[in-house]
Structures are given as structure tokens and as C-alpha cells.
Computed example of a mutant assay.
Amino acid sequence: MAFFDRKKYALAGVITAVALSCTAVNAAEKFNLSPDTSNRVRAQKDEAAIKAIAPSFKFVNPGKFTVGINPWDPPIATYAADAKTVVGADPDIAQLLADSLGLQLELVSVAWEDWPLGVSSGKYDAVISNVTVTEERKLKFDFSTYRKDVLGFYVKADSKITSIKEPKDVAGLKVITGAGTNQEKIILEWDRQNVAAGLKPIEVQYFDDRAAADLALQSGRADVEFNPNATQAYNATINGTRKLVGTLSGGWPITAEIAVTTKKGAGLADAVTLAVNDLIKDGKYAEVLKRWSLSAEAIDQAKTNPAGLPKSGS
């Protein structure tokens, strides 16, 4: 596991911070990152969805839809200029669902590693944070899908790498990805296949913040980043320092979807799925995705607990 050496790269870190400040200004111009959430797309109360909530289900905070969310990267979810308000596509989806269920939205920031315990222990009613449906996760959680899972390979804008479509294309490269994610599983499987075929192994790199990953890619300490396409496309649009060289379903070799995550058997999933489908029908769902340039990841129909990515080793 490779982490950013903040002492060794202190000066470079300062330069990166300045660059990120400029990026934030550009982002504000292209996307609305204001802490003023009064302009969020809103929905009407969905009586059918409300009736679909199991009588036994009790919201964490009466009258509120308490949602755990990881403000990791725009346009999915990030902190606004006030450094405390969470904005982005997932917060907007959460708002639509809260409205549909006749509730006030309460977002709770959570580290990615902590959301499973938060849902299982009843700390949140749901987590809406780019979570992919997997068979292993379905043992503990219920899912209501709301977006396609698309991953992207991005390189430095002037990189000689022009296309990544299959395992051999990343042989011998230094690849940034997220620990404990589906993209990590994919890249490790590609590495296994490459090594078995006698090709050079991949050097997988993990970073604990966006600035560190960007610095590694721009400095040449990494060759490519393989993570959710939405966030990388956002960065590419804003700063112009990286380019897309390939995409992949987050469920490679099968299709994967992102879902609202609730406690297994709690009795909320069917209501959420019904609400998402009604939002798809009335156009509010499409309006949110368009606002964050995510229309390409739209689904035609939400499903409760569809087939997910297979469990490890299966």
C-alpha cells in the first residue's frame, strides 16, 4: 500500500493545494457547489411509496430521512464552500427520496469504511454513497438501484497511453485505485491474469486523499487512475490535466448498478425502489443527473435486490 509522503513532498503539496484552489473556482463556475441548497431539485410526496414502508420500520429520527453519505469527490458528493454542507448528485437523490417519503432530509457524513456498521447498527435509515450491489453485501443489506456503475481509466493529459480495454493494457503500469472497492477487485484480477500469462505485474497504489492521487499522476509516480468515471470525468472537465483512455462496468465482466443501501429486512427498500421509479417517470430523476453531468449513468428502472456482483471466489 503506497501513501503520500507529506514531508518529502511538502513543496509539491503546496503547489498542488494552489492548483486545487483554482480547480475549486473553476468547479464553482461549471457546477453549483454553493452551500445554499434551496436550488435542489425537489419532489412531491409519493403516497404509494409511503404506503410501501413496512409498518414495523421505524426511522432513526421521527419525521426525518437520515442518510449516511461519504463526501469523497464531486460530482457524486463533496463539501460545499462552507466545508460542512454536502452537495452533489447523491445528496440530490437523497433529497428527492426524502421528499417522496414525506420526510425532512438529514445527511450525516461518514467515512467509506464506516457505512456498513452505521447501517447495520441503525445509525442511519439508509446510505446513499455510490454503493454497488454485490451478492456478499446482500447478505446484510437491502438495495434499491438508482444509477449504473461505470469505472474509468484516466491518465495524464500528455500521456503516451491512448487506450485501456483489457488486462494486458495495464501490464507493468502503476495504477491508482480505491482500497476495498470493486475497482480494486477488478484491477487485482487483471493483474493475476497478466502474471499468469507471463506479463509484468501491476503496481497498485492507494491514496487517502484526492490531492495526493492527482500529484502522483501528474508527477509520473503513477501511470493511470482507475476509479469511478463520474468523479474523474468531473476533474478532467474542470482542470484539463487528465484524459479518459477507457471505461469499464463496475461489475466487470458483468454489469453493475449503484443502489440506496438499507438494513436487511428492515422494510424500507421496496418503498425506496417505488419512489425512485416514480421519480424516473416524472422526470425529476433525469433532472438531477443532468445537473451533475451524469445522464450517461441513468437507469431505466429501479430494482430491489437485483443480481449483484458475485462473492469473492465464486
Rank of each mutant, 00 (worst) to 15 (best):
G152A: 08
L217E: 03
K160T: 13
K84T: 12
L248Y: 05
N70K: 08
I93V: 15
I53C: 09
R210T: 13
V86Y: 03
N229Y: 15
D208P: 00
V170E: 01
A94T: 07
V245D: 05
A81H: 10
P62D: 13
N277E: 08
F3S: 14
A266N: 13
P228W: 05
S159R: 04
R210N: 12
A269T: 07
I258M: 12
K281F: 00
D278Y: 00
C22T: 04
F226E: 06
L103I: 01
L199D: 05
P116C: 03
A266V: 03
E225R: 14
I202M: 04
T237Y: 01
T241Y: 10
R242P: 00
F207L: 04
Y234E: 08
Y124P: 06
A212K: 03
G122P: 09
V204C: 02
I93S: 04
S312F: 04
G102E: 09
T134F: 08
A28K: 11
P75R: 02
Q95L: 10
G178S: 10
N70W: 05
S219F: 01
A28L: 03
K8A: 15
E136H: 01
A216F: 13
P91E: 04
K45I: 13
R210Y: 12
N26L: 14
K311Y: 00
P306A: 01
S295P: 00
P35A: 09
A83T: 09
R221V: 02
S163I: 00
L20S: 09
P201L: 03
K303H: 11
A126L: 06
S293L: 00
D82V: 04
T181H: 02
I280E: 09
L33T: 11
A98H: 07
K30Q: 14
S314F: 07
I280W: 07
V60L: 07
T241L: 13
P167S: 11
N182H: 03
W292Q: 04
P71L: 04
K290I: 02
V67S: 07
E113M: 07
V288L: 10
A256C: 03
Q301H: 13
G251W: 06
G178T: 13
T66L: 15
K174L: 01
G118R: 08
L103D: 02
V110K: 13
A126V: 08
S129D: 05
P62G: 11
S293P: 00
F65C: 11
F3C: 02
L268Y: 10
P253V: 12
N39M: 02
L151C: 06
T247M: 08
V67Q: 10
I128W: 03
T85Q: 06
L279V: 02
S163D: 12
S219R: 14
L101Q: 05
A98K: 05
A94N: 10
R40N: 12
L294A: 05
E257I: 01
E166Q: 15
A27R: 11
V127G: 03
V150K: 10
G172F: 08
A211Q: 11
D300G: 12
T273E: 15
E47A: 15
S249W: 02
F207K: 01
Y79L: 14
T162E: 15
K290S: 11
L101Y: 06
A213V: 02
A54S: 15
